[in-house]
Design a protein around this nucleic acid. Structure first.
Length: 227
DNA sequence: CCAGACGTTGTT
DNA sequence: GTCTGG
DNA sequence: CCAGACGTTGTT
DNA sequence: GTCTGG
């Protein structure tokens, strides 16, 4: 799955790579983006690609409490079109989530070892996602809040050595169709969420357990562990 | 009918 | 063990 | 995802 | 809002 990721890349480079505009988003490099925190996503607004920051953990529009979003940090690609919490967003509110790495943990007995998955050149890639708008109170502020979820798929042989499931990665040629709110070919959309074909897409590093703490956002999170 | 869930991964 | 918050 | 709390009354 | 379980 995908419960933590990085976006260390500067905002202007992300905007350029995803050919997106940004009205007001600001961003500092992040080494440990955790659920319920805000992060940039790319979506279509008025037929243009726009980058906005949203809260991670999709809060369905009908939710009574924002806390429901804490459960909705991931959505299975195989079932996302049908699930009550996601199907409305799947129809018309798909997005790309820029990331330049993500973490998975593997437990060996009592120990929990984090691994960091990233491209050899550390360039950003696009995780497939959905976003939603919910109106209600978060930390004393009541207004419309946007939130997102990351879609998961089966791992391939390479990533599967560490973890059974991984975020769905969209190749650049799929971005436009995925983002198009008018595009409604459900089977075609779900086909985009297939496991990563290229087994050598990611480099996998065993990294510092500093990343375990959601509040630790230091560069040391991505440092390779000795041994 | 109403009440309660609405999600995922990974497992001694 | 299970839930909540980040 | 992991870390940290998991409770109450009453107030320096 | 909509579905499932009782």
């Amino acid at each position: 799955m995908c419960g933590r990721y990085t976006l260390r890349t500067q905002l202007n480079q992300v905007l350029q790579q995803f050919a997106a505009e940004s009205s007001s988003a600001t961003w500092e490099p992040r080494y440990n983006i955790a659920p319920t925190q805000h992060a940039p996503v790319v979506l279509i607004e008025e037929e243009r690609r726009v980058l906005q920051t949203m809260r991670w953990g999709l809060i369905p529009s009908w939710a009574k409490e924002a806390s429901l979003g804490a459960k909705m940090i991931n959505a299975r690609g195989e079932t996302v079109a049908e699930k009550p919490a996601f199907r409305a967003a799947f129809k018309r509110r798909r997005c790309l989530i820029p990331a330049d790495g993500y973490y998975e943990w593997r437990r060996s007995g009592a120990k929990k070892q984090p691994y960091y998955f990233h491209q050899p050149d550390d360039q950003p890639f696009a995780m497939a996602g959905l976003w939603e708008e919910w109106t209600g109170e978060i930390k004393g502020e009541t207004h419309p809040w946007r939130s997102f979820t990351i879609i998961t798929t089966e791992s391939n042989d390479q990533t599967g050595k560490i973890h059974d499931r991984m975020p769905a990665i969209l190749t650049e040629e799929d971005w436009d169709l995925w983002l198009d709110p008018e595009f409604a070919d459900k089977p075609r959309l779900q086909k985009m969420l297939h496991p990563l074909a290229d087994e050598e897409y990611f480099e996998i590093d065993q990294v510092s357990t500093r990343v375990n703490s959601p509040k630790n956002d230091s560069a040391e999170c991505v440092q390779v562990e000795e041994g």
